[in-house]
Simulated assay, not measured.
Amino acid sequence: MNSTVDHLKQLLHDRDPRLFAAILIAVVLAGLCVWLFIRWRTPSAEEIERRRRERVATMGRICDGVIVDARTLNGEDSVSPTPEVLVYSYRLAGVTYNCAQDVSRLADRVVGFRIDQPIQIRYDPRNPGNSILVSESWSGLWQK
């Protein structure tokens, strides 16, 4: 092992310091590029939520439920025809689930809802609390 270290020292000692600096800068820049690439490829929270909705919409089971409330993202009651959050309830195997879904990005999908409206819920059979009321490709709202 000492011979390897000695050999490396000899190589570095015989080389131009500018070459060593150029190699060091190249390694740092390559590391920075890798870090930026990984950081750039990390999906945003919005993208993760969209993927979850689509997975439940395509793979989930359907059950009946009811809209319980409509709220803003701040938790206040909403009287808007397109609320930001819909609170809904459904029952599976004797367990009642009360959930809320942020529908602010899906406003065109929830127009015409009403409180106490019967709806269909899609849920993940492996995790029944993971459910959706609407997604980009599916809606559990009963259209008039």
Rank of each mutant, 00 (worst) to 15 (best):
K144V: 11
C33T: 14
V27F: 10
D77W: 08
I48S: 02
M59Y: 07
V5F: 12
R105L: 13
Q101Y: 12
T4H: 09
C99H: 03
L92A: 05
L32D: 02
V134W: 01
F37P: 00
S78F: 07
Q10C: 05
E136M: 05
A22G: 01
Y123A: 02
A22L: 12
S78G: 04
G60N: 05
L86Q: 05
E54Y: 02
E84D: 14
M1N: 08
V85Y: 04
D16T: 11
L32S: 11
M1R: 09
V87F: 05
V95Q: 08
T82A: 11
C63S: 10
L92M: 05
R52I: 13
F37L: 13
G60P: 01
E76D: 14
Q120Y: 06
D14M: 08
I132F: 07
Q117A: 15
L73G: 01
M1D: 06
R41N: 14
L12F: 15
A57R: 02
M59G: 00
S44M: 10
S80P: 00
T58F: 03
M59P: 00
E76Y: 13
I115T: 10
C33N: 08
N98Y: 10
R91E: 15
C63W: 00
G60Q: 03
V111T: 14
T4G: 06
S139K: 03
C63L: 03
L29R: 02
A21F: 12
G75D: 07
V85W: 03
N2Q: 11
D77M: 09
L29P: 00
V134I: 15
Q143C: 02
G31M: 12
D14A: 15
R53D: 12
W142Y: 11
I67A: 02
E54M: 10
V79I: 06
T82V: 15
S78R: 05
S89A: 12
R114C: 01
V66Q: 06
F113P: 01
S44N: 05
I25G: 02
E136K: 11
A30Q: 05
R122G: 02
T72E: 08
G31S: 11
G94M: 05
T96P: 00
Q120C: 03
T4N: 10
F113G: 02
R126C: 01
D6Y: 12
P17Q: 07
L32C: 07
P17L: 15
W40I: 04
V68F: 01
S78W: 04
D102P: 06
V34P: 00
Y123P: 00
L24M: 10
D108Y: 12
R105A: 15
I121L: 08
L29T: 09
I23S: 04
W142E: 11
G94F: 09
T72C: 03
D16S: 14
D102R: 13
L11Q: 10
V85D: 04
D116C: 03
G129S: 13
V85N: 02
V56A: 04
S135N: 03
D77E: 12
G65Y: 09
R61F: 14
G75Y: 09
R126P: 00
D116K: 12
D6S: 14
L24T: 13
L8F: 11
P125D: 09
A70I: 10
R41F: 06
I132W: 04
T72F: 05
R52P: 00
F37C: 05
T96G: 02
Q143Y: 06
M1F: 11
T96F: 01
S78E: 05
R55W: 09
E49L: 11
